[in-house]
């Protein structure tokens, strides 16, 4: 194989894995949108908050340290212990469930039956509140997140691919980050289990029923509050996974919350209501933007196409297929 082709392949593979991470964020959106008709603007911030909480618990940070020190004149920052990664993740899950409970009890319950735009505004408020709250709780420094997932380039892949190159080509092997491979495996497992949950279990069915017709769901004895808490908890869990992956890649910092913006075109492409759509949409955008940058962007347009490519693609989709690739068709009987 020629080196050019191998380079292209490398770009595509890395795009695919970036796409998996986009999918993961988009998945959180889809879950909440399906079950409560809310476009949850706070999903990105939830990922940031989850990552902050995870690091905070893991490194034994004192929550609200700054506030405590300011009020009591103390100087506490760390408890001085380290919590094992798995246990820290477990605690983070509990925190996100508590968060889901608070969101539903304090905000959603009071907004039952309101217009979607009002709920959307509420999630914008929630996003900015959480951003500040997260910084106050765990401070706003850029932190390193390490839960023991290996990272760095895979030498094995490099060694294998180097032999693929044709005789006499200057080729040094493919660079694939092990972290990306792990992220892909975990994301696939997460998606498969979520899809199975929605399709085959009683709460999953109830969740889809609520998504379809909340009033009717209420009338057959499904408690909307419970379903909402469940769904926001699931979205919180997805946020944790996304937060871990992105955090491990680029550190826990404010820009983590902006991945939510990358999820938007994914959703337009895949459809707001489809779990598989979120996945396929994420992959298409991941691969698409990397290949576009490599083949057209850098040689002809001066690069930096990754910033807008996804949105243009999404725009084209909006015009020709508004429900997305896999979105639920709006059923209209004639």
């Amino acid at each position: 194989m020629s080196a050019d082709f191998l380079n292209l392949l490398e770009v595509a593979i890395n795009g695919l894995m970036a796409g998996v991470l986009y999918s993961l964020v988009a998945l959180g959106f889809v879950l909440i949108f399906k079950a409560s008709g809310v476009f949850n603007y706070a999903q990105g911030v939830m990922a940031l908050f989850a990552a902050q909480t995870l690091v905070g618990i893991q490194t034994g940070q004192v929550p609200f340290a700054h506030l405590i020190n300011a009020i009591f004149g103390t100087e506490v920052h760390y408890f001085g212990w380290n919590v094992p990664a798995l246990l820290a993740i477990l605690f983070t899950v509990l925190v996100m469930i508590l968060f889901a409970w608070i969101v539903v009890k304090v905000i959603l319950v009071r907004l039952v039956g309101q217009e979607p735009i009002i709920l959307f505004m509420a999630t914008i408020g929630l996003a900015y509140f959480m951003e500040g709250f997260g910084d106050m709780m765990w401070n706003s420094e850029v932190k390193r997140l390490d839960v023991g997932i290996p990272s760095g380039g895979s030498f094995w892949i490099e060694d294998v691919t180097v032999q693929w190159a044709a005789e006499g080509e200057r080729y040094f092997g493919m660079y694939v980050d092990v972290l990306d491979i792990w992220a892909t495996v975990i994301a696939v497992a997460l998606v498969a289990s979520l899809a199975a949950f929605a399709q085959y279990t009683k709460p999953g069915r109830a969740m889809r029923a609520v998504a379809d017709d909340p009033t009717a769901a209420l009338s057959v004895g499904i408690s909307l509050n419970k379903i909402w808490i469940m769904v926001w908890s699931l979205a919180g869990f997805v946020a944790i996974v996304a937060g871990i992956m992105w955090g491990a890649k680029s550190g826990v910092q404010f820009s983590l919350s902006l991945i939510a913006l990358k999820a938007l075109p994914v959703l337009m492409l895949g459809g707001f209501t489809s779990i598989s759509g979120a996945i396929v949409g994420g992959l298409i955008i991941g691969v698409g933007e990397k290949l576009f940058e490599y083949l057209i962007g850098v040689p002809f347009l001066g690069g930096a196409t990754e910033n807008w490519f996804a949105y243009v693609l999404a725009l084209i989709f909006l015009v020709f297929r508004p429900q997305g690739l896999f979105g639920e068709k709006i059923i209209e009987r004639v």
Binding site: K202, R205, A209, A211, D213, A216, A217, G221, I331
Partner: peptide, 17 residues
């Protein structure tokens, strides 16, 4: 008010929530 995107049987099962 059936759940439109659920099958008829899934609709019935939801009733037994």
């Amino acid at each position: 008010h059936c759940f439109e995107h659920l099958t008829v049987e899934e609709n019935l099962l939801t009733g037994a929530y």
